[in-house]
Design a protein around this nucleic acid. Sequence first.
DNA 1: TTGAAAGCGCTAACAG
DNA 2: CTGTTAGCGCTTTCAA
Lengths: 340, 340
Amino acid sequence: MGRQRPDTPTLEEVAARAGVGRGTVSRVINNATGVRESTRRLVQQAIAELGYVPNLAARSLAVRRADAVALVMTEPDWRQFAEPFFSEIVRTLGDTLAETGLQLLLTLVRSDTDRVRFLEYARGGRVDGVLVMSVHADDPLPDMLADARMPTVLLGRRSGDESISYVDADNAGGARSAVARLVEQGRTTIATITGPLDMYAAQCRLRGYQDALALAGLKGGPSLVAEGDFTEESGRHAMAELLARHPEIDGVLAASDTTAAGALTTLRAAGRRVPDDVAVIGFDDFPLAQRTDPPLTTVRQPLEEIGRAMVRLLQEEMEEPAVAWRHVILRTELVIRESA
Amino acid sequence: MGRQRPDTPTLEEVAARAGVGRGTVSRVINNATGVRESTRRLVQQAIAELGYVPNLAARSLAVRRADAVALVMTEPDWRQFAEPFFSEIVRTLGDTLAETGLQLLLTLVRSDTDRVRFLEYARGGRVDGVLVMSVHADDPLPDMLADARMPTVLLGRRSGDESISYVDADNAGGARSAVARLVEQGRTTIATITGPLDMYAAQCRLRGYQDALALAGLKGGPSLVAEGDFTEESGRHAMAELLARHPEIDGVLAASDTTAAGALTTLRAAGRRVPDDVAVIGFDDFPLAQRTDPPLTTVRQPLEEIGRAMVRLLQEEMEEPAVAWRHVILRTELVIRESA
DNA sequence: TTGAAAGCGCTAACAG
DNA sequence: CTGTTAGCGCTTTCAA
């Protein structure tokens, strides 16, 4: 199974060739100050001639640092993985980390053996920190990482009193402002299609919805709530269910743009005009939201800022491990796309 | 930026605690033979008590091996990334590699600096081999890897005489059999919506289409060919274009199930009945294909086998670097879903 | 079956 | 400014 990298030149050979000491070569490849320009050039030439590349394992062993961080994905069914939300986050994280000289490694963790395997990898020092996409409340990995004293930052918290550093969006606030807008428009029977309620984010959105309704003095019983799972199909389904229970519905807050699109389909099929008869607002704001008919008004999460914040937190955590939990909650924004 | 992992116990401390030599501990953690059972147990207890985890950098330095492989993704616009094709491949690769004890690391390479960065990472010995998703002919990364003597396996070749090991599906054959089926059904004006023609896979499919047409003695001029990019939108667009040029079209081969779905939409809008007036066959076979109306007949690529083959080739390459190029071309399969 | 010792290639502290 | 030296933690002969 093993493989041995062939005779890569070592720093020592570079030193010999350049006629300098190893320390000097080390300084050059690390861009350290205090090397005469002529010497530096000498070394660089030797490096080029030999095609030298530093052995990262050796460096890592010496400095006790890997200069890499992992983004672990635990979504059991990977639906997330195919969503734009996911790729946007990854893109942002990748860009941000590149600026700081850290390698981003995505790793998939689905089974328990995967979890153990990854933990050994991380504890073994191959990465300096871990970002976790999962927002499932029952995933043991975050706690395993915390126990191992691994600098860790979660995207989204697992509950109201998360004990690990995280970055989250203001889900409740987003839901509130969405519902507030529906109320302004004069809608009086406002339903919601939620995300999986074992996710805290979905709970928060639901709470925001309920709060806003209460504030407006509107009714919002359980019969106006249907649970979905972010998919379009669940949107279609849930909408049909809601319509059956409350034909008078004139406003809907959906768990995602995808779900909202599903809801639109059902509403159309039921002969409702959108947005005249019923207005739909969805969370997330991806291209899909503009392609629906009519284009969707959405609650946008600032993915770019979320990515940046995650990296910043992780870096703080890496510099000064385990002194505090750091939390950042980013504001959401209502993107209005109705002419009505 | 740096971080120092705190006082993790070392193998030496384990040895001291267990009252044995370091070599013995090493043997135990590597499941080597030739350790008395009682000694082994002693060591394992010490390991457990101390919570010892081997330092992977040190091991890597000693054995000159990382026990990890990278899957690099270079799709510039990431559309791939959000496609089921992608996640299926990743899943398969992950499972297969797990069986062999190798860590799978996904890395994103979009810019040239990304490329250089990754190359240093790989050449630096952090991974033993590289799998490349990209199938774009002009990506320099595969050659950079080859020049660096990195064991590398591509998913799909870049051209007819690929100089790097690869695994591919029989695209031409798949296209041929799809067209053959349309011909059997009595279709006489068969168009195709291709993938991006700078991808060899798309070229092969186009050639397969043309060959089958020629074999059947049907015309197949350029006006029956429209270039798309695997997206649904491109499918809608291309179909409209084709329909404008050849209203008599009665059969279509699409670059993917997604594209095919787009084509269906356009055909419907144009008042065509599917499959009565026009039959559509798409490449790829994902859940979408079953949800369209009517369900799509597709050309299925054996993703599972592709993933397995990639891992196998990479392992061969790692054991015995640079002695040969290894190619595997896997058969495709027509999945028929028409009742017609 | 086990212990001791010699590296693996690099960084960093310390002289010079 | 630069060379020397002492590790970083693990594997792997080689003896015992």
